[in-house]
């Protein structure tokens, strides 16, 4: 550790002993959160999330490709994070390093394991053609707590994604189209997706125009992250707190108040009580963040 973080560590722990944080927040309190959706025209869905000074942009692109052999009827999702050198003097260009890979994998798990995207509804022709969903996360400004910002950006972007069927329909042959129309009937039984699956039917019935439709999703869990510095547990760490943190814990909770994912990071440890404390804080903050997320997508 260099000299500056060592001095800051002193300062941050002294403040914490008096129950304070460097930016005047409470231990459980998040910085202001802003979510802006549909910020990239070329993307199928996008969102820019600000948590305090941290800024993350997520864009969703979709394509048609082959399914994995072991899951012939489910769509494929993949997540990548870029720590572009724009965001911090310490980020370098080049292939993603381990912190970028960890971030992408944590976001990926949050989406994949709780089945937020209904991938089984993204099959076109079993074993041959399925939808591919690419989640690309760009860190724009790094002031701590990338896990929460990146997960939130991914969710907001996915929730505003439109499947670009109108652009791809010309790539599908007769068999694919017939198979896909079967799938569509199924998709439109999902509550919340009520737009007409088909546009105006052509009279000779060979050219059916199809509208882009929202990605089939379920209510997502929300991730909240806390760090531990000495014996203090602080939510939504800013950069100065994060670089001196001993341990980090991310907890994702769903709308029913159940836990859907957890990830501990860094070399420090948590006691049972501290974990309880983080879960409680994640539930409370998760409720608030869910409201902000729903507002941003117009729900």
């Amino acid at each position: 550790m260099t000299i500056v973080p060592a001095i800051k560590r002193d300062y941050i722990t002294k403040l914490a002993e008096q129950g304070k944080r460097i930016d005047g927040r409470g231990f459980d309190q998040y910085r202001p959160i802003e979510i802006e959706t549909k910020v990239v025209n070329k993307a199928e869905g996008s969102a820019r999330v600000k948590i305090g000074n941290t800024q993350v942009l997520c864009g969703i692109k979709m394509d048609i490709g082959e399914p994995f052999p072991d899951t012939p009827t489910t769509g494929v999702m993949s997540t990548a994070a870029e720590f572009v050198p724009l965001a911090s003097p310490d980020f370098e260009s080049g292939p993603p390093r381990e912190d970028a890979i960890e971030l992408a994998r944590v976001v990926d798990r949050g989406v994949r394991e709780s089945q937020v995207i209904q991938l089984e509804k993204l099959c076109i022709t079993p074993g041959e053609k399925v939808w591919l969903v690419f989640i690309d996360i760009h860190i724009l400004d790094y002031d701590g707590n990338l896990f929460d910002a990146a997960s939130l950006a991914a969710l907001a972007a996915l929730l505003t994604t439109k499947v670009p069927i109108s652009r791809f329909i010309k790539n599908l042959d007769e068999k694919d189209r017939a198979s896909w129309q079967q799938q569509l009937l199924d998709i439109y039984t999902i509550p919340g997706i009520d737009e007409a699956p088909f546009g105006s039917d052509d009279t000779n019935n060979t050219q059916v125009t199809i509208n882009d439709f929202p990605l089939p999703m379920i209510e997502p869990p929300i991730s909240c992250t806390a760090v531990k510095i000495n014996d203090f547990v602080l939510f939504d760490s800013c950069f100065d707190e994060e670089i001196i943190a001993d341990a980090r814990l991310t907890v994702a909770t769903d709308h029913k108040g159940d836990i859907r994912a957890m990830q501990k990071g860094l070399s420090g440890s948590f006691s049972r009580e501290e974990i309880q404390k983080v879960i409680k804080g994640a539930l409370d903050n998760g409720q608030e963040i869910r409201k902000i997320l729903n507002q941003s997508i117009g729900k």
Binding site: S46, G59, K61, E82
Partner: peptide
């Protein structure tokens, strides 16, 4: 200078990186 295009900035997804 380092010019970089986001994967989602174009019609068909661009592979990340230079």
């Amino acid at each position: 200078a380092r010019y970089n295009m986001a994967a989602f900035s174009v019609e068909d997804r661009k592979r990340p990186g230079p």
